[in-house]
Design a protein around this nucleic acid. Structure first.
Lengths: 133, 133
DNA sequence: CTGGATGCAAATGTTTTGCAGCATG
DNA sequence: CATGCTGCAAAACATTTGCATCCAG
């Protein structure tokens, strides 16, 4: 049924890059080569992959959607310096959720933690600067 | 120096409503009365209040910015049924953050947890339906 | 008079949709 | 031949900015 989508494949390829974890549509479009694919096609491919559960779609405070490979659950650190979105291990335990559910009478299906701070790289750089200034 | 902003005051007024925790610009505009204030004025007032630290600005996965009164830190539950954003007590302890910082070498300034699930009201409704269907 | 608040309209940036063509299955 | 992927263009949305005006201090 489904034909092979060159664009989808290329997107999945891109997402393997270790230096960039979460991609905006613009990132993806640029990453594929702006002339290699139309923006709307990138959009459709990404949405489809997200709908299929292959990608996870996140919206940050910058108001843009970011796509990442949908592997094991993890949370994110948004680096205030470089703006990169870093994957970090999950910070919330089942216990905490259960407790909260019982406490205020809600049902929790999923969660997503977004940390703001400084990634490992920028932290080092900053430490260096701090020492000299 | 600063003149009293009718709109800012009205916004702060709106935010006191117990039935609606986080407001989009559209919500605010509608809440004030679409003719009572211009959208851009609402936008500017809200941004200014956020910059002043009076409001907190959040961007959800719906891609829209939401404003809430900036009181004590808390996290949020986004109800999958009614779409309401419910304030919930913070789920992340200092310890967890410290541990993570040490573990992966990052610095954490802030965090924000967004839970997806069902709020207390919708949970009850759903339970009722489940019994009848 | 001065500076900030407001309204109106237009620009931006991002996401989404409509439609036609093409290649694949 | 039918279906789904693509490209191109325009619409739909939400946010943001420019400019002129008006009012409070």
């Amino acid at each position: 049924m489904a034909r092979k989508s060159v664009i989808s494949a290329a997107i999945l390829e891109l997402l393997q890059r270790p230096d960039h974890h979460a991609w905006t549509l613009k990132d993806l479009h640029a990453g594929l080569g702006e002339t290699a694919a139309d923006f709307s096609s990138v959009f459709r491919a990404a949405e489809k992959l997200a709908a299929a559960g292959v990608l996870r779609k996140l919206t940050l405070d910058d108001g843009r959607a970011h796509f990442e490979p949908a592997g094991a659950h993890h949370d994110h650190l948004h680096c205030l310096d470089c703006g990169e979105l870093i994957a970090v291990p999950c910070l919330i335990g089942r216990d905490a959720c259960s407790t909260l559910e019982a406490e205020i009478g809600v049902t929790i299906a999923e969660h997503h933690v977004i940390l703001s701070g400084r990634c490992a790289k920028c932290r080092v750089v900053d430490a260096g600067h701090a020492g000299t200034g």
